[in-house]
């Protein structure tokens, strides 16, 4: 079988067929595509729905903090004001970047797989608008504020009309804020800011402390992808649970 092609000769490389991989390389990008698309469609629909966001002490994470702004007689959905911030955090996240470049941009769809469309000129993240990805640390700062707000919401979820109690919704909200915290604080930017930027840890007392924190964050950082997906699922599931309870489709399970 002749393998010579004009394209490969131009590049001065070995003449090879376009794609030699015969394994199921397409499964991973397909799952990422389906996962992110499903969440994106659901979150957009919920943001515009602007109802069924609270029940008893529960408040959906999509609608927290509950800020209502009116333009004339029209009330803007709080979710539309809130969701862009976690969206920016996730869009500039080092894990998600790699995942959506593969699944949505096919740049590349998988390792050692040819890209389908001939692109004019590849510049990666070195040119605008992709240089914005370098501002991930600022999205992280805002994400920390949201973690604090959602933690307060989870604490309030124990307050049933002035009585300390706990329902399934409380448990879901607590798990959600914990997983969001793991995801946020295992972030590459935080790892850099806390100690990664230093070269000599032993040169100062604060350097030694920062090294120990950096080590622990590095351990969590190895599971950043896991936390990214788990927290994406729980934040959507928390909203869904509160919506279903609020709409009267299901009843909250009360533990005590």
């Amino acid at each position: 079988m002749a393998l010579n092609t004009a394209q490969s000769k131009e590049a001065g490389r070995v003449p090879l067929p376009i794609n030699s991989r015969k394994d199921t390389w397409w499964i991973k990008p397909l799952l990422v595509f389906l996962g992110l698309s499903t969440f994106g469609i659901y979150a957009t629909w919920r943001a515009f729905e602007n109802r069924y966001y609270s029940w008893g002490p529960y408040l959906s994470p999509f609608y927290s903090p509950f800020l209502v702004i009116h333009i004339g007689h029209f009330a803007i959905s709080p979710a539309l004001l809130i969701l862009p911030f976690p969206l920016i955090f996730r869009m500039t996240c080092y894990y998600y970047r790699g995942a959506y470049y593969r699944a949505f941009f096919w740049d590349p769809p998988a390792c050692a797989v040819e890209e389908p469309a001939a692109r004019k000129q590849y510049t990666g993240e070195s040119r605008f608008p992709f240089t914005i990805q370098n501002l991930h640390r600022f999205a992280f700062y805002i994400a920390v504020i949201f973690i604090a707000i959602l933690a307060a919401d989870a604490i309030i979820a124990f307050d049933f009309n002035g009585h300390f109690g706990m329902g399934l919704g409380t448990l879901i909200m607590v798990v959600n804020v914990l997983l969001l915290s793991f995801y946020t604080f295992s972030c590459h930017s935080f790892r850099h800011l806390i100690g990664g930027a230093l070269n000599c840890y032993s040169c100062s007392r604060s350097g030694k402390t920062r090294f120990r924190i950096w080590q622990r964050i590095s351990l969590a950082n190895e599971r950043h992808m896991l936390f990214a997906w788990l927290s994406l699922f729980t934040v959507g599931f928390t909203d869904l649970y509160i919506r279903l309870v609020s709409a009267g489709i299901i009843h909250d399970v009360r533990f005590f």
Binding site: Y94, R97, G98, Y101, R102, D107, P108, C111, A112, Y122, T123, G124, E125, S126, R127, F130, T131
Partner: peptide
């Protein structure tokens, strides 16, 4: 070195 060109798809780590 052009670090900005890297779009962190992590294939280098995989292989």
């Amino acid at each position: 070195a052009g670090v900005g060109f890297c779009n962190i798809t992590k294939c280098c780590t995989e292989v």
